[in-house]
């Protein structure tokens, strides 16, 4: 938190909420002293790399520690009018749009894994960002594609590649 303040970046006030910075970076508050910064999907990630370098270079004693989420976590986005229906089949938590509102997140289980589920409403529709263990990404993808096929809602798979 101290470093964010020093760098002039705002952070969401409450745990389990998010906000978007003017530069496009999203800030997800996962704990009193834990935030996750994400670049806009499909972007180059340049701004985020800048922020990371700035954090590395900072000599602030209480700047915190990095948890290597860019390496340890996989990141999926489920979006569209049928997104809530798919979420009902992959998680037992109450992730209904009226319960998990935009700019809020839930730390819970989905796809049989510990997961962070954040409501961002990307791509002009209800959408959920899901973060979970990278080593389980293959398994999660199996579950997602099989479950999505069962909804008969014509879900398509796309990759969130950086634009390089």
């Amino acid at each position: 938190m101290d470093w964010l303040g020093e760098a002039g970046l705002s952070a969401p006030e409450s745990v389990n909420t998010t906000l978007d910075l003017p530069c496009g970076t999203s800030v997800l508050r996962l704990g009193q002293q834990e935030v996750l910064l994400t670049a806009p999907p499909g972007g180059s990630g340049a701004r985020l790399r800048e922020l990371r370098n700035a954090w590395h270079d900072s000599e602030l004693p209480a700047k915190g520690y990095e948890a290597y989420r860019d390496e340890g976590w996989a990141w999926f986005v489920i979006s569209g009018p049928a997104a809530p229906a798919l979420m009902r089949r992959i998680s037992m938590a109450d992730l209904r749009p009226e319960s998990l509102k935009p700019a809020h997140l839930a730390q819970t289980r989905a796809l049989h894994l510990d997961a962070v589920v954040a409501r961002f409403d990307r791509f002009g529709a209800v959408s959920y960002d899901i973060f979970f263990d990278i080593a389980s990404a293959g398994f999660a993808l199996d579950v997602l594609t099989e479950t999505a096929a069962g909804t008969n809602a014509d879900f398509q798979m796309a990759a969130l590649h950086p634009a390089e």
């Binding site: 745990v15 389990n16 704990g31 037992m92 938590a93 839930a106 730390q107 819970t108 289980r109 510990d114």
Partner: peptide, 11 residues
């Protein structure tokens, strides 16, 4: 206390 009500299997 931080995340609200959850199924016991999350604990």
């Amino acid at each position: 206390p931080v995340n609200g009500p959850r199924n016991i299997t999350e604990f």
